[in-house]
Design a protein around this nucleic acid. Structure first.
Lengths: 210, 210
DNA sequence: ATTATCTATAGATCTATAGATAATGC
DNA sequence: ATTATCTATAGATCTATAGATAATGC
């Protein structure tokens, strides 16, 4: 906020373009003409080129922004815990709940499928860190953390897809069940996996998400 | 093959377009002009409209074809087995190996991410069937087969992504490790999961795939 | 005689920019 | 005075079709 008014106006225009782009991506309208995007952002056609060279560049910025926001929201929700397995489970359970809470952003991630997995931003580095901590602490016994991360990342995405495709399904129940299954996959005994994935969560409901 | 020569020629043209479309999808060139696709298929521009109304229609046909081929190859490789958990593991392990063997088709599936999960064609129905059989036989103990399928489908896709992103990684080793982890997730005891995911496979190497 | 294909192109659509206008800085 | 935005549009690109050609059927 140290910028002057001119820079803030510029940032607003850029943010409007990014937000509009996210709507188009979420709707799968990846071929939308630039003019339509700028109209949806309530910004003149020419302004687009003050910020981006191509539509791809805008869409990339939109994805990065979605990854960032998702990660930041997650960080704001997760507290410090002693048990590393509990840390992992809590993050996963909160992430699952975000698909319905931040549907636009969630769909942006899903549409870009596995950029998510490979990107250095967003959820992947956090998940990798949590898995490696739990391995080091002896809570997980999986052979290769990168392969474990692969399963977890794929599950996060497929779960999001499921929750958008079946709006009547209880998202918390589905997410917690998958968390439990994944804990077992990671080497946690079945009864403990069940317990860990049913503990109380820091409230998502109340939090001013997005 | 009961058709006449005219119909065979028509089918060849259509197949050339579908195959070309799969290359473009695999390369992520979803905006390629129709003219480029027909040129790549070595087919006149006008012929496109004899078979498809829009580019989307062609791309959809290309995805369906990829799903079909993948499923048929898988069926041709899997034999009859007594143990339902073994059936599941064998299918998964063979599927993992197909990413490198049918890279174009694999990338088509990955680009369409989760059409795969929801489509009635291809791998999803086979995986669902295998999971439900193993549940009925008491080999798997997972609470909700649809959520188990969600994890498995996400893992298939994320594994494919990993294998394309890291061409030096041993695909068989990675696939078998994930199969083992997934068996544990599904409720199979750890030592058994390990054993089942290391058994000999019907040869993929020799088979005339694609 | 019929059907599928091909080539060539009119018309629609989109991109990228030039030049004018509005907002802010100093 | 400077910077960002806006409107309007030239030029590039793409789609969809008309009309000509080639292949097959009977």
């Amino acid at each position: 906020m140290t910028e002057n008014r001119l820079e803030r106006r510029k940032a607003r225009t850029r943010a409007a373009l990014v937000r509009a782009a996210q709507e188009f991506i979420a709707d799968g309208k990846l071929n939308a003409p630039i003019l339509e995007i700028t109209q949806s952002a309530d910004v003149g056609m020419g302004s687009f080129y003050n910020h981006f060279q191509t539509k791809e560049e805008l869409f990339h910025a939109a994805l990065e922004d979605a990854l960032d926001t998702f990660g930041q929201v997650l960080d704001s929700l997760t507290g410090d815990l002693d048990d590393t397995a509990h840390v992992f489970a809590q993050s996963f359970r909160l992430t699952g709940r975000l698909h319905r809470r931040l549907p636009e952003l969630s769909k942006v991630l899903l549409h870009n499928g596995f950029e998510l997995t490979r990107s250095g931003k967003g959820l992947a580095p956090r998940a990798r860190r949590d898995i490696e901590s739990a391995l080091a602490a002896g809570r997980f016994t999986v052979a290769d953390p990168e392969l474990a991360l692969t399963i977890v990342a794929g599950s996060v995405l497929a779960l999001g897809q499921l929750l958008h495709a079946q709006p009547d399904r209880d998202d918390a129940a589905a997410t917690d069940q998958i968390a439990e299954d994944l804990l077992r996959m990671l080497g946690v005994p079945a009864d403990e996996a069940r317990d860990i994935s049913r503990r109380a969560l820091p409230s998502v409901a109340g939090s001013d998400v997005a």
